[in-house]
Design a protein around this nucleic acid. Structure first.
Lengths: 162, 162
DNA sequence: GCTCAATTGTTATAACATTACATTTCTTAC
DNA sequence: GTAAGAAATGTAATGTTATAACAATTGAGC
C-alpha cells in the first residue's frame, strides 16, 4: 500500500490505471497527429508516469541500463524533446526533472505545486490562471511563447504530518 | 548608444544609474540587517547588474578571471547564494542564470518576462499576481515557500523589429 | 527493393553546480 | 592588542545535467 494513497491532492486517482490511461491517450494522440511514438519514446513516457514524482533524465537513463538498453544521454534527451514538443511531458526547470502532462490534448502551459518534502508535484490546470498570466504579459506588449510556473512548498499531507 | 535604449519595457531607466542605485540599496540593506556585503559579493552583484540580461555563474567566473581574481566556482556560487538568500538577486531556473532584483526591500517572489530574441528579462513586480498565485495554492491547501514564474517569448522591440 | 527522411547509436565534451577540507579574515570578548 | 571562535574564502576534485557532431539504422512511401 502506498502511504500517500489517501492524499487527495497528490493522488487523485489509482496510479496503475493513471499510467495506463496516459499511455493510451498518448498513443491515440500520436496516431491522430501522425507522430511516431517509438519504443524508446513510449518507454520514456511510461517511466515518467510510473514515477510518482518528477524524474530526471539520468534516472530514466539508469532505468534503461537496468533493462539492458545501453543507451547514452542523447537517446533519452531526444525522447524527452519529442514528448515535450508534443505536450505529453513537462519539464520542471527548478528541478531539472520531467513529469507527465495530465491533459496533453490541450497543448497548454501548465503550472506546478511542488512539495519540498515528498518531492511530488501536482499540475495546476486552471485555465483562469493561464489567461491571467497571458493578459498580464499582454499588458507589457509581450508575446508569450511558453510559461514556467513552479510553486514550491509543502503539500497538505506533509504539512499535517509535521 | 544602446540600440535598445528606446525600449520602454526593457530599458525603463538609465542603466548606469540603475546599477549605481542597486548597489547603494544593497549596501544600505546589508548594513541595516547586519549582513556582510564583502568584496566578492559586491562585485558579483555589480557584474549581475552590469549585464543587461540574465547572467550565468560561469560568466561571472570568467569576468573574475579577466580581473585577475583566480576564483573557482564555489566562490561565485557562494556569493550568489548569499545574494539570493537576501533577496538581492533572483535565479532564473529556465535559463540557469541570475538577475538583480529590482525591489530587494520587499522580500518578494518575482516573475519574469524573458525575451528569446534579445535575451533580456523584465521582472514582474505586480503584487496582485503574487496574491492570486498564493490564493490558488491555498485552495489546494498548499503552503507556499517560493515561486518561480518565467514567461518566455518576444518583447515589444524584438517583435516589432521582425 | 530503393530512396529519402526520421530515428537512434556512439563518442566526446560542454555547461552548471556541489562536496570536502584547508586557509584566511573578521568579530567579539577579554 | 590579542586570543578564540565564527564567518568567509581558497582549492581540488567531482557530481550532475545537457548538447554537439557524425555514423549507422530503421521505416514510410514510391
Amino acid at each position: 500500500m502506498n502511504s500517500q494513497s489517501d492524499n487527495a491532492v497528490f493522488q487523485q486517482h489509482n496510479h496503475a490505471s493513471c499510467i495506463h490511461d496516459a499511455l493510451i491517450t498518448a498513443k491515440k494522440l500520436c496516431k491522430e497527429r501522425g507522430l511516431r511514438l517509438t519504443d524508446t519514446r513510449l518507454r520514456v513516457l511510461e517511466l515518467i508516469w510510473q514515477s510518482h514524482k518528477p524524474i530526471g533524465a539520468y534516472d530514466i537513463l539508469a532505468q534503461f541500463g537496468q533493462e539492458g538498453r545501453n543507451s547514452a544521454p542523447p537517446t533519452v534527451y531526444r525522447a524527452l524533446e519529442f514528448l515535450q514538443e508534443n505536450g505529453l511531458v513537462h519539464r520542471i526547470a527548478s528541478l531539472n526533472a520531467f513529469m507527465g502532462c495530465v491533459c496533453p490534448q490541450e497543448g497548454h502551459q501548465g503550472g506546478f505545486l511542488i512539495c519540498k518534502q515528498c518531492k511530488r508535484a501536482q499540475e495546476i490546470t486552471e485555465d483562469t490562471l493561464r489567461k491571467q498570466l497571458l493578459s498580464l504579459a499582454q499588458e507589457q506588449d509581450f508575446e508569450v511563447e511558453s510559461m514556467t510556473l513552479e510553486i514550491s512548498g509543502l503539500c497538505t499531507t506533509c504539512r499535517t504530518a509535521q
